[in-house]
Design a binder for these strands. Sequence first.
DNA 1: GATGAATGAGTATTCATTCAT
DNA 2: AATGAATGAATACTCATTCAT
Lengths: 180, 180, 180, 180
Amino acid sequence: MDKREELIRIATALFSERGFENTPLSVVCEKANVSKGLISHHFKSKNGLLREIFIKTTELIIEMNQLDQSNLTAHEQLQTLLESFFAQLESDKMRFQFNLNMMVQPNTRAILSDLIKERSDFILKSVRNIFDQIDPNTSLVKSHAFIAELDGIALNYLAVYDHFPLRKIKTHIITKYIAQ
Amino acid sequence: MDKREELIRIATALFSERGFENTPLSVVCEKANVSKGLISHHFKSKNGLLREIFIKTTELIIEMNQLDQSNLTAHEQLQTLLESFFAQLESDKMRFQFNLNMMVQPNTRAILSDLIKERSDFILKSVRNIFDQIDPNTSLVKSHAFIAELDGIALNYLAVYDHFPLRKIKTHIITKYIAQ
Amino acid sequence: MDKREELIRIATALFSERGFENTPLSVVCEKANVSKGLISHHFKSKNGLLREIFIKTTELIIEMNQLDQSNLTAHEQLQTLLESFFAQLESDKMRFQFNLNMMVQPNTRAILSDLIKERSDFILKSVRNIFDQIDPNTSLVKSHAFIAELDGIALNYLAVYDHFPLRKIKTHIITKYIAQ
Amino acid sequence: MDKREELIRIATALFSERGFENTPLSVVCEKANVSKGLISHHFKSKNGLLREIFIKTTELIIEMNQLDQSNLTAHEQLQTLLESFFAQLESDKMRFQFNLNMMVQPNTRAILSDLIKERSDFILKSVRNIFDQIDPNTSLVKSHAFIAELDGIALNYLAVYDHFPLRKIKTHIITKYIAQ
DNA sequence: GATGAATGAGTATTCATTCAT
DNA sequence: AATGAATGAATACTCATTCAT
């Protein structure tokens, strides 16, 4: 059993549920059944642990986007992307919650600022690759609007409305972008 | 000089910039030039101060939405709403930052849960009033999509991209909804 | 009962006996019957407490040197100074121990560097005032030699030899300087 | 490359510069490019390492004092001793700093108490051997005064005055003892 | 001889809150 | 209404030491 991986796994869950600042390392250690010193040993500090988690999540995101889709049309790629987004949003709420927390909270945003920039640049580039195939002149704005729309959906689903109609929104959005 | 109002003003700014948990009351007091005891006296606790601020902000939002627009068409109302949203987003970043923080952070969301529900229900109702005039059958989903889109824009503008093309997005969005 | 003064009194004793780094604030607070938070409140930090103590000690030293001795000859002034030094060395070992600790230990020396400079400059100036009356050409070296000699005696008495013959040394030194 | 010797060398330097308590073994290991376990293996504990260093230094001191000087007069021996002291004080500040630290700091003094006694007794005996040749009746006091004077000079040179006039003090002291 | 993961006690510091004045 | 001394629980972090390999 790798305690380092275990710590990352448990800390991710706790930081998502409770927020970074509201999660003492003592709780992380308790849940992971390790001593406090081990976090120092592996991650240097609480901030170090946070950065490690964020990096791992970015790697996951990049990995998922590296499927070869060169045989699909732009609209098919958009559809694939949307299906994947909504599927994950439902199945891995925790990670979306984590990402929202970290980017919105001033403190964590500062700790992660370079990593956030890296990741969001990658995402923009990926989405823009698709919109470029439709119309290079409008791709920047459309990419930003697209990303913002999905982020807003995640935000409202996870943090605002108890009865957010996610499935209907999914249909609505997909229809909109396919028919485009 | 009303120290109570002064405290609310300063605390709002600080909670926005630094986050709630990362803003000790000592800093609030220092900036407001008052003693620690005074916060207890006026707001009972730090949570009490936070709720007070959130309530004030909700009142502001409600006030702004109570302009009589019965003489406008639905699409004109949408346009007015969007213009107002983008104008405020640029001129009062702080308050948007504050709202995002409070809703995303698990801890503050818990403290404010009833107030968040109240406010977001009000917003949904207001927007839905407009979309009902276009098509009652789709108004719920469209309202949610509309709100999510704006929230996502605020999120990306304030917390993700340094060079978010806000003005172009504004044009893009308004065009989209007006032409609808 | 002034808890602030009490804290300074007790911390001085403990830092002398155990050294600064080897004296946890928990022990200071326990002995003083106050909470840990009170040290933060009054002195900001452990370093702040240390500086406060050092400053108070410097004030004591300066006070003692401000007796008017203009009616005494230089050699009489030296004798007075030596008598006073040996008397205090015996009666207030603690404070000498404290001063030695703080100046020799790299860590505390760094924390107090400005204050140490201030104090040692004052002492040099005071001693040199006397030696100037004997011979201005040699006063700098003689003052330094004089101060070093006394510091060395304190060091050997307090930190090296269990059976240091302090009284005989006193007679020896006084004879030497008077006969000069 | 003998890692044991390397560790002693590096630890001596670090304990001198930073003080014993303020030098974590982690720093020693890092500088020496060895693992933490190795210190335990070689020296059992941090205190063990300290004692080892102190013992080595004492051996150095004893060695230097065992030159045969039976053909010199007492005053010549004193002069030799003083020349050697001042030369070393300038060339090996670090070791003097180390010795001062260890003897003044209550914690290290306790750890080394037997070794300190041994060494200082040896030094007293050595110096007294010389003063005995001048006058056995006063040799004890004069030896103590002599040692204290040199310690005081080291203390003031290393830990008090930035611009301590070491060379002039040297001339002053040597003149004093030779002319005696 | 040598490594490095793991421990756990220890420590300074932070901070919301209370309360006498 | 307003102050500020005082509390005490909470928290991140340090660090010597142990031990399996």
